[in-house]
């Protein structure tokens, strides 16, 4: 069969879902299905039981605290993020990135949780969440824990989730005054995968304060570039100093090569997109 025969269950509550995931070794949560069904179609993973969590209300809410902390349920779709007033209010960049995931049919179904849990290096949200210092809220039948986004992505199609665990939501700290975010990609075409990508979160108080610079498509997971971050800290928020900081990106990166870009090109472009993402973050932060 195109899809091998598989059991399917749609639990009514999160605990019920967690029970199913714990008690079935071959179980996998199904949210929007935009990646998992392709994985199954290509027979690169075998799943015996699909636990459809897409309708669980608890996983589908977006909340925003008075301090500007936002929590997005793992089954919230890209389209809902794009159109969320809560997200747009303080985290416009998250909405903008969600809005650029092609195409509308996928945005109607695909979820933030699925985007993260697949850990496909071409996915849009992981580098952004790492840059924004997001926290991944994880539950299992035995309890709950929090994992920093930075520690969540472990490799190609590999995350910090243990068997039986479920990502329930993502918490993103506020982007306060003077803090901005940027996100820049070089893509094959308008609605294609990125060749290389950078996300940045930069604090400016006269000079650059804390900066987080994350590169994607240069390794199996989004990577923070500490060298560039260190070079930015205390530097004036100018194009020249950002360019100088980006120059620290070098041969420590060994990006993959494919027909859309050699390793060398990706390394060079990593500098370009990192620099642009940081400048975008500075501009955005300065506008507040």
């Amino acid at each position: 069969m195109l899809l091998k025969s598989v059991e399917y269950v749609r639990p009514d509550t999160v605990p019920e879902a967690l029970d199913l995931l714990r008690s079935n070794v071959g179980a996998a949560p199904l949210a929007g299905g935009q990646s998992l069904t392709n994985v199954l179609k290509h027979r690169v993973a075998s799943v015996d039981l699909l636990v459809d969590i897409s309708a669980l209300a608890e996983l589908r809410s977006i909340t925003r605290t008075a301090e500007g902390v936002i929590e997005i349920g793992s089954c919230v779709t890209y389209d809902e993020i794009d159109h969320s007033r809560e997200v747009r209010a303080g985290h416009d960049i998250v909405a903008r990135v969600a809005a650029h995931i092609e195409d509308q049919q996928i945005r109607n179904r695909g979820t933030i949780g699925g985007n993260c849990c697949l850990s496909d290096p071409t996915n849009n949200l992981p580098p952004l969440l790492v840059a924004l210092g997001a926290t991944m809220n994880v539950r299992s039948a035995g309890g709950s824990r929090q994992v920093a986004a930075e520690d969540f992505f472990k490799g190609y199609f590999l995350t910090a989730l243990e068997p039986g665990e479920l990502l329930t939501s993502v918490t993103i700290p506020p982007l306060l005054s003077g803090v901005g975010a940027g996100y820049v990609s070089v893509s094959v075409a308008a609605d294609s995968k990125a060749i290389v990508r950078a996300a940045a979160r930069v604090e400016v108080k006269g000079v650059i304060g804390e900066a987080r610079v994350v590169l994607a498509r240069v390794a199996s997971v989004p990577v923070r570039h500490r060298g560039m971050e260190d070079a930015l800290r205390g530097a004036p928020p100018t194009a020249e100093s950002v360019r100088a900081a980006a120059a620290t990106i070098g041969n420590e990166l060994e990006p993959i090569a494919d027909s859309h870009g050699s390793s060398q090109y990706r390394r060079e472009m990593a500098r370009v997109v990192a620099q642009r993402a940081v400048l975008e973050a500075i501009a955005e932060g300065g506008g507040k």
Binding site: V188, A189, A190, D191, S192, K193, D258, S259
Partner: peptide, 29 residues
């Protein structure tokens, strides 16, 4: 001119055997 190319590696393996790698132009492009 800008997006589509079928390239083979030295072992004769096609590098763009699906739309994941072969970007067929769309209305967006």
């Amino acid at each position: 001119a800008l997006y589509e190319s079928f390239e083979y590696d030295e072992d004769g393996q096609l590098q763009e055997p699906s739309f994941y790698e072969y970007h067929a132009g769309t209305a967006r492009d």
